[in-house]
Design a protein around this nucleic acid. Structure first.
Lengths: 204, 204
DNA sequence: CGTGAGTTTGACCAGTTGGTCAAATCAAGG
DNA sequence: CCTTGATTTGACCAACTGGTCAAACTCACG
């Protein structure tokens, strides 16, 4: 294992290559379905060499997950109590949709984990995520009470945003097959904007 | 392996037990993450005994998938060109939501497969599902052209229905953690009805 | 160019896994 | 109750997998 000192050039390069390869492999085969050998080969290293940089397969996975969750929740954190409610929500939807397009592997990695019961994530969800969701649900409820957007169950509203946006990353294989030549991300922004605008615009 | 004759009482019972157990195990660990031993134990059989009824792990999985897909698409097939458009769509949404509540394992099994790129399902999706979706997208487009529901990209409309309803099964672990005591399925039907009603009800 | 820390590798190990097989056990009809 | 086919099992195997280790190699730096 590399010493506790500042990482050398080689260390930085190889650790980055491993995490990049691991994201690729884990996101398309799940934790259990991925082998250390696969990841090593994808990173251009031998298995023992990879294990020189990370103590175990699980350590790679955990580091990947830790890094992921933070960026994953940034768009929600950015929901601004001071902004115009409908525009804030629509912007959140679009930001989330962009993440599905630009970081589909991250989305699938997360999906893989949750679908299988979130065995390695349960604590994080119950703690950090729960607090954030509770806060933002309050915010949405406040906007609704003030008549600035239509009423709807705030948490279900958040779920629907996650669901609709991440669907384009998580079910990419299905969506693309059914869309043929058309790029799903051409019409998706418009579709989701229309959906949430119609749903939330308060009756004049 | 059982002969090609009519299945005995024991054969019927054990094959059913195996498929039931396999649904449980596959849906919560994925194909690669499940072991034959796990399935056998869950079915109350020894591993060699299980392999007396199915030639391989993959054979179990395939039989499960084949049976699944048909029932999975039934609600969409039931979308009736003769019915009242908005009510037809709302009924479809509710039927799909009920399936997520009553058959979450089936939903997760399917999700697991698609998230990982649908390696074993690509052909089926490209063939059967594609035809059905093409047909129903036409139907929706017709309703929009006739001004009976609001305009929206028909395929994205279908994707959104799948996404929103299956989310409650596939992301159950996350949804339940964030909802606390409240059963997600209490408010979900109302939420989705409101969403699609607001979105699709034509401006008078 | 020498040297010591950092890096890489082939050989290896123990546990797991999908699957086989011959022998043992069971069930049902004659 | 006895025979025959259906069912079950313990022992076993080969391939794979996560991980170890000592030896070899490389590289930066004095």
């Amino acid at each position: 294992m590399p010493a506790d000192r500042a990482p050398t050039r080689i260390q930085r390069k190889n650790r980055a290559a491993i995490l990049e390869a691991a994201l690729d492999v884990f996101s398309s085969h799940g934790f259990r379905g991925s082998t250390v050998d696969q990841i090593a080969k994808a990173a251009g290293l031998s298995k023992p060499n990879l294990l020189y940089y990370f103590p175990s397969k699980e350590a790679i996975f955990n580091e990947l997950m830790a890094g992921l969750l933070d960026t994953w929740l940034d768009p929600l954190r950015a929901l601004d109590p001071e902004g115009e409610p409908l525009e804030e929500i629509l912007a959140y939807v679009q930001r989330k949709l962009q993440m599905s397009r630009d970081f589909p592997r991250e989305s699938r990695l997360y999906a893989n984990e949750i679908v299988q019961g979130a065995p390695r994530l349960h604590d994080v969800i119950a703690a950090d995520l729960n607090v954030l969701v509770e806060e933002k649900a309050q915010l949405l409820q406040g906007w609704m009470d003030a008549g600035r957007i239509n009423r709807a169950h705030p948490k279900h509203l958040l779920f629907s945003i996650w669901s609709l946006t991440q669907h384009y990353a998580d079910f990419d294989a299905q969506v693309r097959t059914l869309m043929g030549d058309e790029d799903p991300f051409d019409a998706a922004p418009q579709y989701l904007e229309t959906l949430y605008r119609r749903m939330l615009t308060p009756k004049s």
